[in-house]
């Protein structure tokens, strides 16, 4: 086992093509697909969102839908056994916390480089993950 071989690799997915493209390089760090942990973060809904007002959607139904969508997307045999998780909150904090929780030894994250004004307000998710993660982080560039 070299230092490039990892036990648990976390890949945050935001359903963009760039983020799904991070799975391939991430896969190369581990021996089994079951060592990959895919995480999707949902943002909090506004209390006046029609579905929230009428109690037709809540975080549970949203997690269920998003999980189904992830399953659908990752149904290829090469991703059999990948761990999937959905959390609600601020992406960077959730990624950092989750990495710690599963004791990840690597995070593979794409950098969109399209953050513009939101980068001005908060910095990019990748930036914050690099600064505060407990483990090494690989940032993929296009």
């Amino acid at each position: 086992m070299t230092w490039l071989q990892k036990n648990r690799v976390l890949v945050p997915i935001d359903f963009s093509e760039e983020s799904f493209a991070a799975l391939q390089p991430a896969r190369e760090f581990v021996q089994e697909p079951s060592q990959l942990y895919v995480l999707h973060i949902l943002s909090h809904l506004h209390p006046a969102e029609p579905g929230v007002v009428w109690n037709t959607i809540d975080d549970e139904t949203r997690k269920k839908h998003a999980l189904e969508a992830l399953h659908e997307r990752l149904k290829d045999s090469e991703y059999q056994g990948v761990h999937l998780a959905i959390l609600v909150g601020d992406p960077s904090s959730k990624i950092i916390d989750y990495a710690q929780e599963i004791n990840a030894d690597l995070i593979v994250i794409p950098s969109h480089g399209r953050t513009g004004l939101s980068r001005f307000f908060l910095g990019s998710v990748a930036e914050r993950v690099i600064r505060f993660a407990h483990c090494p982080v690989v940032v993929l560039r296009k």
């Binding site: 943002s43 506004h46 006046a48 601020d90 953050t115 004004l117 939101s118 307000f121 908060l122």
Partner: peptide, 18 residues
């Protein structure tokens, strides 16, 4: 209206800075 405004803000600046 804070919902309408928030959706527009999210359109311009992303969900994270609402």
């Amino acid at each position: 209206w804070s919902y309408y405004g928030e959706r527009c803000w999210a359109y311009l600046f992303g969900d994270r800075s609402t």
